[in-house]
Design a protein around this nucleic acid. Sequence first.
RNA 1: GCUCCGGUAACCCAACUGGCAGAGGUGGGGGUCUCAAACACCCUUCAGUGCGGGUUCGAAUCCCGCCCGGAGCACCA
Length: 836
Amino acid sequence: MNTDDIERYDPLTIEPPIAARWRDERAYSLTPRPSADRGEGDETYYALTMFPYPSGDLHMGHAEIFSIHDALVRHLRMTGKRVLNPIGWDAFGLPAENAARNRGADPRGWTYANIDEQAATIARLGYSFDWDTVLRTCDPEYYRWTQWLFLELLDAGLAYRREALVNHCSSCGTVLANEQVIDGVCDRCGTVVERRPLTQWFFRITDYADELLDDLDTIDWADRVKNAQRAWIGRSEGAEVTFRTADAAGKAEDIVVYTTRPDTLYGATYFVFAPEHPLVAARMGDDPDYQAYREAVGRRSEIERLSSFDSDAGGGRAKRGFRLDFDIVNPVTDEAIPAYAADYVLMDYGTGAIMAVPAHDQRDFDFARQEDLEVRVVVQPQDGEPLDGATMAEAYAGDGTTVNSGVYDGLDWRETKERITADLEAKGLARATVNFRLRDWLISRQRSWGAPIPIVHCPSCGEVPVPAEDLPVELPDDLDFQVQGSPLALHPTWQHDVVCPACGSEDARRDTDTMDTFVDSSWYFLRYLAPQDDTRAWPVDAANVWLPVDQYTGGVEHATLHLLYSRFVVKAMRDRGHLAADEPFQALLNQGQVILGGAAMSKSKDNLVVPGEVYETYGADTLRGTLLFASAPEDDIDWADVSPAGMNKWLARLWRLSLEHLAREAAGTAEDHDADGVRKATARAVVGVSEDMAARKYNTAIAKLMTLTNAVLDATRDGSGGPAVREALTTLVTMLAPICPFVTEELWARFGQDGSVHDQPWPRADTDLLVEHEVVVVVQVDGKVRGRVRVPSGADQDTVVAAAHADESVAGHLDGRDVARVVLVPDRLVNLVLGG
RNA sequence: GCUCCGGUAACCCAACUGGCAGAGGUGGGGGUCUCAAACACCCUUCAGUGCGGGUUCGAAUCCCGCCCGGAGCACCA
């Protein structure tokens, strides 16, 4: 056959009309919409991918995750699942404000233009999202319910306002978000950022700390993500111990510390307060040296915290201390020990004060050496050189026996820990407690492209929630982004254009902060159930059926923020009766990154590969196939190692084989010369690809489809090919459909098949074809391969051993010696172990 | 320092629950086609699995100790 007569594979011509049709016809919209009715029993499936942030067009990372997600979704549909597959945009955030400030753009217009661009690319690439679910978090119809969520949490006592240290830039006259502070300076003007106390809104996520930790065991997430959350939550068990200032009777004050090692109390040779501790401020506030110290620490701490360290431990960081003019009494030794303020003690962990045990804590040890304080060993390791506080080079935090601790000497340190805690508890001086590293979630942002916090401040009523029926509290559309400070707070009328909902006072004003954008994204998966519902945030009955999300896909960079916040919100809403699930996302798949030459791609490095370069040259199918073939979904893809040209070549080959076959049929010459071989190859591919698709190993699924292609190529090389080849090709096209939806749709039509290939049931293999009557069994002698024998499948040990003995090369290695033991792996291998 | 992931052919990547190390691709070499080239097609090339121990009839796979690379967390008492 003359290949010149065959129409070339031309994806740039065949793909766009199909893409447009799918989008215009809403080909992948779920009907009926989600409701309490599961429809067909357990066949419903909620597939979710992290919604994009619209800061320009899609990048390669989006293309990767969407290609993985779409293969998963299309495959599930073909296996009979009813799949909810929504899309939306995480549309509030700082880049829109920056565009407004730097280029005079309108944040709303800028955002919507980017969304349109991304939506067009998504459609062009054939991702089968349900376009009837689209939501944007910056729409008033959406953030109305974000504000409702805030009021729910407020009503539940899970939202509260308190003073907190925040980043403040004196030059810009505004508070900054953590992301706006780069290496301790304002990213706008370069001024060193100060930490200032300001009153801010928090969500009480710490109320759920234990449950957030424990329920990690119930969800199917990668260990690294779970571990990141465990570390972030940071549960520790210890005791609160009461110390006392060394003052005359009557004047002494109690001061409580938290420690995980109450067994080392006898080794506490000094005492440290956080610099801003209220007891210190009360006693030292007038001391000019102390004031200077505090100022220096406050100014520098942020820079220190954000700078990197090449030290061998956290203790390598310089510690700035200040000797206070009073002492503290150690409750077990009754000694007066010196008190310090030092910046290595944090005000917002534990009680903001510690007992320092330099012999057994590296940070305390470093500080003690620096200040020349006593290092007293109270735990001796079981073996090795005994520790000497005067000469030891580092703290010892390992196991050991208690020493220098009165009646507790000689006990294992764990035993000492329990006994000391119990003894002090009996005297009212201690209490066993659990502590968490997790802090409450600060959600106030001094920004203007976000959901306004629905609170009115009234001079007589205080903080008054905006009544639910008055939501949304809408952003004004005439913000001036050129002002120094928060445009919303500096808007001439917005905050005053309100009366107190409680008393009607005209002096009331709106809260001018907006919510952290992570609040927007902490519940969007619930809104997808009914994005147009203007009577409630989500339908409770549908939520009870569809939550948790069956499969969530997205980047691992959200391990401790978005994923933790969403879990908190679901648990809180559950406790308010708005849904039944304990967790938002039952299974999580984290895709790898797309990198280039071993380094992350970025605009600043000018090493960006964008999806357009690929799909405008080779088409969307090649882009999708390339990304899925490059590696397993979880692994990184180095673009330097992949070959879109190779993927394109394979698709072109499949195209050519298909059209050649159709030409044979048209010419009436379609006959198989090896029908059995082709059918067997087809059945083998169906079995293998089905397994791989179910396990989401798209790279090996594609390899097996290539193998089948090669088998068809071999079978048709002589120009023959009949029904078996047609079956092989249509089956191949069906199985490739989730990965390369366009070329498969086109070929499906060319093969004269009805409907869309994407509506076909997933192929089943004729496994009878795969039953072998004879198998080749590998023969090992003492574990080394010495030959192969052909035996009937299912042959028993005697038969196989007899066949092995009959094999010349095997017999040579047996050398007449006795076989002491036979290990048989049926139909695969036999190992003859010779006697001593 | 702690946690997680990875290390197999020139390169990327496979190998079910321990059972013949190779499915697939890239690249290299040779060839067919062509006036020539590109494309396409055909043939071919290439590792004993990072290192050292151990368990086992048998280890890329399991265990222990290292080395290298990547990611995350780190003054949390």
